[in-house]
Nucleic acid binder design. Structure first.
Length: 731
DNA sequence: AGCGCACCGGTTTTT
DNA sequence: CCGGTGCGCT
């Protein structure tokens, strides 16, 4: 096994360790991904069949990248390993076994928004005052219960405080509605498999035999339900290989339970423990500074990170006046380092605590003409126009999905309002039928007058038509025909605003994504496309090769690394967030800061502002307590030299040099978009597409993952393709 | 009955 | 600066 020579002795021990429970405590930058990858290759070499492994990662992107690396080492065998997030892997299992749980295999997956909509309508139906209980709070409580594997009954029995007692019947009703809609929420994708395995020991045994080796990445961020699920699945062979770092546990708010990793050796007696402590990523100053911060936390698995890397430059703390000054200083930092270290734009990431911070930074970058990509914010699949179309498609695939139906019943506007909706709902409830069924029988509902009933019936016929068309068309054709039939694009065109133009482009992008998915995956793709679409995270679409600075939250940065990191807004109230009061929450914020610091390879800059607009009010900010925790020897501080008076004409700064800013950004946009580094596609090039054959690139639009090409094909004429999906090759 | 407009309130992080 | 809710108009 030649590849083992790429590993240091400890990594090698981690890779070659025997069967049974294993915990790899992998410090930041210690080669965790490499160990996990080689462990899988090692298992394959020792005779384990690829289909006997289940590898669970934190993001789809991580899974994809790992699969790519394994493929380079062992070839196509890699594709037979089940590798993906908990949510996508278990939704696959659930689809196969859905009937055993009283669902059918075409169930819908509800995201947090869909769940919230359902909870709101339940609260309305039960005349619960939304002022008393925030629907979001109810949803979060239910989600937490599910993460702790509490079904409605257990929850109800355990409910002691007032709020829980109020929520218990809602939880019950919510779960019933989900079942009625043939839908699962995110948490169900973990909890329902547990239920499945409890009720059907034969099914459990089938999967225990199947997945004899289970590997889990980012183990510190698993929740109780995930722990239990893996525990059940691994009970027979006990080959559980968990990799994680307790110091990087940052998802407690979503149910992650750090005890899973801290107690691993209690849960699995005679588990082997390997500590990866040599850091290959960061310079000495950065690592020492980060270590000084994280040392303050109690409750840790003992470890001491070290590195043979050079000391490098000290960590720089840049004091700024306010958020726009901060943005300017970030621009300067980027420009200066590009000159000094020959860094390129994709070598930089700007990290922040909350998405709202990106606005000011974006403004600064835009003004300087520096291209950037944002990870997070409003994810593509969360956009209204996209969710609307997906709701149509979901309804077509799963006619029981009342929630999706309600979303689109009046989109685009058909003159079917709240009152009519209520009447339809009542009729459906009285007769125990789905909303779509009620719509088909709208003539029997006397309270709905003829004019409106006509429009309702028309909607019913539309959906019925597409349900029938589904067996005759590919998913791509169906979606395209639907968008045409709804006349969404002409409707948006009439608006004429830049936003509606962007929406049109988003819709077209969605259509190409479906078409390309079709071309790749073959038949029955609408189901699986919809399932995958609900589970993509923004980070999954992130393309690190684009010629742009990356902006994202500290959470999104987990698992990534960049030559140069800038952490913005390191102030009390922001980092640590003022939502965190108790000590364990402060410790989580500290871990978050630690995660951010340890993303840096060569340069780490931290900015903070003395004043910041919060709630439309200019507040004086105090430096984060975490800054003092970095030993002085690793830090250099640059104080703000500017005075407050300059801020007086801040709002007027824009007209001061509009010409120059505009030309610059136009220039950059052009250079950025006429050439795609990743695919090496440029305008005028002859290309080859797996489905459409030969063609020539006419134009390129967008940047990064959104980059699209108009290609003139010999076979089918002109088509717009999203490069990320299209698989174009230079011909 | 539905739609458009104005105000108000509430804001972390996300599979 | 964004969305949701409530009111008044059509």
């Amino acid at each position: 096994m030649r590849f083992l020579k790429d590993l240091n002795p400890v990594q090698r021990e981690a890779v070659e360790t025997g069967d049974g429970p294993v915990l790899i405590v992998a410090g930041a930058g210690s080669g965790k991904t490499r160990v996990l990858t080689y462990r899988i290759v090692y298992l394959l070499h020792s005779g384990v069949q690829p289909w006997n492994m289940l590898a669970l990662t934190f993001t789809n992107k991580a899974a994809r990248e790992m699969q790519d690396r394994i493929r380079l080492l062992v070839g196509d065998e890699a594709d037979r390993i089940w590798m993906g997030t908990f949510h996508s892997m278990f939704s696959r299992i659930l689809r196969r076994e859905a009937d055993k749980l009283g669902y059918s295999r075409n169930f819908s997956i509800y995201d947090a928004d869909d769940s919230l909509g359902l909870i709101k309508s339940l609260m309305n139906a039960q005349n619960m005052n939304a002022d008393q209980f925030a629907p979001r709070a109810v949803r979060n409580r239910i989600s937490r219960a599910k993460n702790a594997v509490q079904g409605p009954e257990e929850f109800s029995r355990a409910a002691v405080d007032f709020l829980d007692q109020k929520i218990a019947p809602l939880y019950h009703a919510y779960q019933e509605q989900l079942r009625g809609n043939n839908a699962m929420d995110f948490d169900d994708l973990i909890m329902q498999p547990i239920v499945l395995f409890e009720r059907h020991p034969d099914v459990l045994e089938k999967y225990q035999e199947r997945f004899r080796h289970i590997l889990i990445d980012e183990y510190q961020d698993t929740n109780r339900a995930q722990y239990l699920l893996v525990n059940t699945l691994a009970a027979k062979y006990r080959n559980i290989y968990a990799v994680g770092d307790d110091a990087q546990s940052i998802y407690a708010f979503r149910g992650a339970d750090i005890r899973n990793i801290l107690d691993f050796r209690n849960d699995y007696k005679n588990a082997r423990l390997v500590r990866l402590e040599q850091n290959y990523r960061s310079t000495g100053h950065i690592l020492a500074g980060a270590d000084a911060v994280i040392r303050r936390n109690k409750d840790q698995i003992a470890k001491k990170l070290w590195t043979e890397n050079p000391e490098g430059n000290p960590i720089t703390i840049v004091e700024c006046l306010d958020e726009s000054d901060e943005a300017m200083k970030i621009v300067h930092l980027i420009q200066e380092q590009c000159r000094k270290h020959k860094f390129q734009l994709h070598d930089f990431a700007v990290l922040y605590r909350i998405n709202a911070q990106s606005r000011a930074i974006e403004d600064g970058l835009r003004r300087a003409g520096i291209p950037y990509v944002i990870v997070g914010g409003t994810a593509f699949y969360q956009r209204k126009e996209i969710k609307d179309i997906l709701a149509y498609l979901r309804l077509i695939v799963n006619p029981a999905d009342n929630e999706s139906l309600l979303r689109i019943l009046n989109v685009p506007a058909r003159g079917i309002g709240a009152t009519t909706q209520k009447r339809l709902k009542d009729f459906a409830a009285e007769n125990g039928i789905s909303l779509l069924e009620a719509i088909r029988r709208v003539n029997e509902i006397w309270s709905i007058n003829a004019g409106i009933a006509g429009r309702v019936a028309q909607f019913g016929r539309l959906i019925t038509k597409y349900i029938a068309l589904r067996s005759e068309m590919s998913a791509g054709e169906l979606a395209r025909s639907l968008v045409d039939g709804l006349e969404l694009i002409p409707l948006l065109k009439m608006d004429g605003t830049p936003e509606s133009q962007a929406r049109i482009e988003n819709i077209q992008e969605l259509l190409s994504a479906i078409t390309d998915y079709d071309a790749r995956e073959g038949d029955d793709t609408l189901d699986s496309f919809l399932a995958e679409a609900s589970l993509v995270a923004e980070i999954d679409m992130y393309d690190s090769n684009s010629n742009a600075v990356t902006l994202m939250t500290l959470h999104a940065a987990k698992g990534l690394e960049f030559p140069s990191i800038i952490i913005a807004g390191v102030e009390e109230g922001l980092l640590p967030s003022n939502m965190s009061r108790q000590n364990d929450e402060i410790e989580e914020e500290r871990r978050l800061f630690y995660v951010g610091m340890t993303r840096a390879q060569r340069e780490l800059h931290i900015t903070r502002a003395r004043y910041r607009m919060v709630y439309g009010e200019r507040l004086e900010q105090i430096p984060s307590r975490f800054l003092e925790e970095i030993d002085e020897e690793h830090v250099r501080t640059i104080f703000s030299t500017r005075t407050r008076s300059r801020n007086g004409n801040q709002g007027r700064r824009k007209p001061a040099r509009p010409q120059r800013a505009n030309t610059r950004s136009q220039y950059d946009q052009e250079t950025a978009s006429s050439y795609s580094q990743e695919a090496e596609i440029y305008v005028g090039q002859d290309v080859y597409h797996p489905t459409f054959g030969r063609g020539r690139v006419v134009t390129l639009k967008g940047t990064g993952v959104n980059m699209r090409a108009d290609v003139d094909f010999d076979s089918v004429g002109k088509k717009t393709l999203v490069l990320r999906y299209a698989g174009l090759r230079p011909a």
